[in-house]
Each structure stands twice: as structure tokens, then as C-alpha cells.
Design a protein around this nucleic acid. Structure first.
Length: 294
DNA sequence: AAGTAATCCTGATCGC
DNA sequence: TGCGATCAGGATTACT
């Protein structure tokens, strides 16, 4: 499932294609993908049609493309969240559509000509919407969508405050994996990269956050950045401008996973079998030998 | 404040 | 061959 690296690969792929392009047509094939848009599909279609797009931004797993305003700072953005199974595909204008395409946005770029942005989503947990951009508060001139306001910065954000994150962990009365998945503490981490970062830093997923030493918390945060960077590097190498594959399940990043999905297979450090346990209605994969509760 | 459960969903897979 | 059950879970909301 798409987490920060996958969403960033989408952003990087979209940037040259959409920046400065004008929307020439919008088609909604399944209104459920607009569930989070405040208004009917026609409202979405009419407001987006004719708009000129700016360079896309991202925080955690949230992606948005500001619309060029008549004057002053951008006030509106096209927001996308991939949910569990969302994909964004760049296509030629007359290319066939994937069966699971929910929304199609046709563009004309001043240099590259016409092209299509297809939002494909099997499980429809993802969403597309138009929403307001508001001042972020802590940084002048930074504007973020309303749906992102309550999300913490992600660990690749230069303004992410490491010490503040450690302080929050020390105060929390919960276990570390739950904290990693809490997007208000830090954003961008999902089930797969949580397991990977915990394995890499040898932290047990159910270690209470308050008992994690500052030093181990620091190692864990470094591991998150490592795992993200590695996935980004892989996504970068297999990136194709015509096809932005972000399907994590069959996706390319799975090649280097050390814990997730490896139940019963030998731990790549100690050789003992990786265990899988049920946790928060999902799965945790970890090495019971390397990752001890302390 | 923390944790649980329900909600939103469909395609792939598996047992019978 | 087909059919029902199971699984994959990110974010949000409503409760306890």
C-alpha cells in the first residue's frame, strides 16, 4: 500500500507533467472517489475544468496540486489521497482506460501538449477532492489544504522537529508501532515501513513509547529515514514518466523488504524465523530474537 | 487520553 | 466451474 515513498514518486512524476498545464476536461466514473469532496461531482468537475495547475506538494501520504489563482496566493488545491490501492497514471489523451479508473483529468501543457491524468483505485479508500488552502500557521507563506492541517510534518520535511517528536513519544501512553502509525505524531509511515524501520532499529513493535530511551528513539527515526530513502531510490530508478506505478502490494519496493510479508522466513540478521502477529486489525512482522521487549 | 470498533471498499485467493 | 469466506488495511468517526 502506498506510503510516503510511493506518494513522493507520484509527486515527482506528476510535477513536470502538470505544472503550468490547464485542465481541458474532467470525467468522474465513480463518485465514491469524490466522497471527501464537499459538494456534488458536478461542482468538482466545473470548478476544476479550465483551471491551471501549479507544482504539486506533499506531506506524509497527502498530495495536493494548487490551482493558479487570479491574483495573490493560491487559495484552492486538487487534493489526492491514494488510500490502500490508489494509483495515478499519466496517459496519452486517447490511451485505453484501466477498468478501475475512477476519475480522469485531461490536461494541456504549454510545452508537452495534451495528456491525461487517470486516478485508478480498486478499493476506493483513496479520494480526490477540491479544497481550500489555508495558512499553515507556523511558517509564513506556507499554505496547506484543510485536510492536512491536523497531520504532523513527515520525517523527510526539513522542518520536522526531531526533539519534539521524541518528547511526544516520552509523554505517550501507548506502544511504539501504534505511535508510528499515528499521523499526528509524524506522518508518512504505514504498516509496511513501520515494520521495516522497527526491524532495522531492533525495536519490538509493542515496546511502550515512554520506555524507549532517547538514544533508541533517535535510532528508530534514523531507520525510518533510511527505509524511506532506500524505497525512494528504488522508485526513482524504475520510474517511467508514462506510468507511475504506486501499487505497493505488487510494486517494486517490495524487493528489499526485510520483515514485512516474510512470516516464517529467516531473519536476515540472525536466521531465526520472522513472526507475524495480529495488531490493530492488521499484521506486525518482526524478529522475536532481534527485537526484544525491554 | 487511549483504545476499540465500525465504516468506507473490491479483487485475488482458497477451500469445498 | 462456481460459490462463499477470507484477507489486504489508511483515515475518520463514534463511542467507551
Amino acid at each position: 500500500m502506498p506510503e510516503l515513498p510511493e506518494v513522493e514518486v507520484v509527486r515527482l512524476g506528476l510535477a513536470p507533467a502538470v505544472t503550468g498545464a490547464t485542465v481541458t476536461n474532467v470525467e468522474v466514473f465513480d463518485e465514491r472517489s469524490l466522497r471527501r469532496h464537499d459538494g456534488p461531482a458536478e461542482d468538482f468537475t466545473h470548478r476544476l475544468d479550465g483551471a491551471t495547475l501549479r507544482s504539486p506538494s506533499r506531506r506524509g501520504k497527502f498530495l495536493w496540486i494548487p490551482l493558479e489563482p487570479d491574483a495573490g496566493p493560491a487559495r484552492e488545491a486538487l487534493s489526492l489521497h491514494l488510500g490502500m490501492s490508489g494509483q495515478v497514471l499519466l496517459r496519452e489523451p486517447d490511451a485505453p482506460r484501466d477498468r478501475l479508473t475512477r476519475v480522469v483529468i485531461a490536461l494541456r501543457h504549454p510545452e508537452h501538449g495534451p495528456l491525461r491524468v487517470d486516478f485508478v483505485d480498486q478499493r476506493i479508500f483513496g479520494s480526490v477532492m477540491l479544497e481550500h488552502l489555508d495558512a499553515a500557521g507556523d511558517v509564513p507563506d506556507e499554505r496547506i489544504p484543510a485536510s492536512v492541517a491536523h497531520i504532523a510534518r513527515d520525517p523527510l520535511d526539513p522542518r520536522f522537529d526531531d526533539e519534539r517528536f521524541f518528547d511526544a513519544l516520552a509523554r505517550k501512553k501507548t506502544v511504539i508501532k501504534r505511535a508510528l502509525l499515528d499521523q499526528t505524531l509524524l506522518s508518512g509511515v504505514g504498516n509496511i515501513y513501520a515494520d521495516e524501520a522497527l526491524w532495522m532499529s531492533k525495536v519490538h513493535p509493542e515496546q511502550p513509547t515512554a520506555t524507549l530511551s532517547r538514544r533508541r528513539a533517535r535510532e528508530l527515526l534514523a531507520a525510518i529515514r533510511d527505509v524511506f530513502g532506500q524505497a525512494l531510490a528504488e522508485g526513482g530508478t524504475s520510474f517511467d514518466a508514462q506510468y507511475l506505478n504506486v501499487n505497493g502490494e505488487s510494486g517494486y519496493f517490495s524487493r528489499s523488504l526485510k520483515a514485512y510479508g516474510r512470516e516464517g522466513e529467516p531473519c536476515l540478521r540472525c536466521g531465526r524465523p520472522i513472526r507475524r502477529v495480529s495488531f490493530m486489525n492488521r499484521s506486525s512482522h518482526f524478529c522475536p530474537h532481534c527485537q526484544r521487549l525491554r
